[in-house]
């Protein structure tokens, strides 16, 4: 029986039997794993709260017959409590967890970059005032980029001609010059493409200055691009709360 210790973020939990849960974790060194946590649904269990979605935990696992068993769980960051008290942030976070699961196709394949991206994204979502939808869109375009689908938001994705360009083609990989553009393609606003570029590169200073219209259009392009590369889109995306000011927080 082999055991291993790792840190990970809880992506999803499912009920198992009477009182157990199956926990899906994105770990630092072992990629995405699934493990059984025993007895955690009993209200007497003290580790139930540590294994909720969004939790960043230190965990020891040993290989069981079909699924690994998780034990000795210690919390590193509990992002969930804060997120669940802010509906817009919580729904954006759910989409991030679902995306992280979908972008790590095979269990146990190392996915360090995706892990670090998720950890950083959740930290920004839970601990800063940044617009949750922009945090989500930044996370999604960077996930695409880690997966090797980096869209171009400036130079032409077809011939490399220096941008910015007027057109945007999802199957073609992003910005497109007038010569390369396919017959049917989007023509987003210049501000939208520069916002997307800022989100990809992490230039929050310029992203924060974008107008609501550009943010909406950027979200639409990100969703369409994601759908194209993931075959089926993310289920949580249509439940993400948009265009509402985040409710003011109180203790």
């Amino acid at each position: 029986m082999s055991t291993y210790r790792d840190t990970g973020i809880v992506l999803r939990t499912q009920k198992l039997g009477e009182a157990d849960r199956i926990i899906t974790l994105l770990t630092r060194r072992h990629g995405r794993i699934r493990a059984v946590a025993k007895g955690v649904r009993r209200t007497s269990s003290r580790i139930g709260a540590r294994l909720e979605p969004f939790a960043h935990v230190d965990v020891q696992c040993y290989s069981g017959r079909s699924l690994d068993i998780a034990q000795q769980i210690e919390t590193i960051d509990a992002f969930g409590g804060k997120l669940s008290r802010d509906y817009a942030r919580w729904t954006a976070g759910q989409a991030m967890l679902e995306a992280a699961e979908r972008f790590t196709e095979n269990e146990h394949d190392p996915a360090l970059a995706q892990f670090q991206l998720l950890l950083g994204g959740l930290r920004v979502l839970a601990e800063t005032e940044r617009d949750p939808v922009m945090v989500l869109d930044a996370f999604l375009v960077r996930s695409l980029s880690i997966a090797g689908y980096a869209p171009s938001f400036s130079d032409c994705a077809g011939c490399g001609a220096t941008g910015p360009h007027r057109f945007f083609t999802i199957p073609g990989g992003g910005a497109s010059c007038a010569d390369c553009r396919p017959p049917a393609c989007a023509a987003p606003g210049a501000e939208t493409l520069s916002l997307l570029g800022a989100l990809l590169s992490g230039d929050w200073e310029s992203a924060e200055t974008s107008a609501p219209r550009a943010r909406r259009e950027a979200s639409g392009l990100v969703a369409a691009y994601l759908q194209w590369h993931l075959e089926r889109g993310l289920r949580s995306l249509r439940h993400v709360e948009r265009d509402l000011p985040a409710p003011t927080q109180s203790a």
């Binding site: 009182a19 209200t43 139930g48 909720e52």
Partner: peptide
């Protein structure tokens, strides 16, 4: 009520 539990088990 500890977080993470099911109401029916309380």
């Amino acid at each position: 009520l500890p977080v993470g539990g099911d109401l029916e088990y309380a």
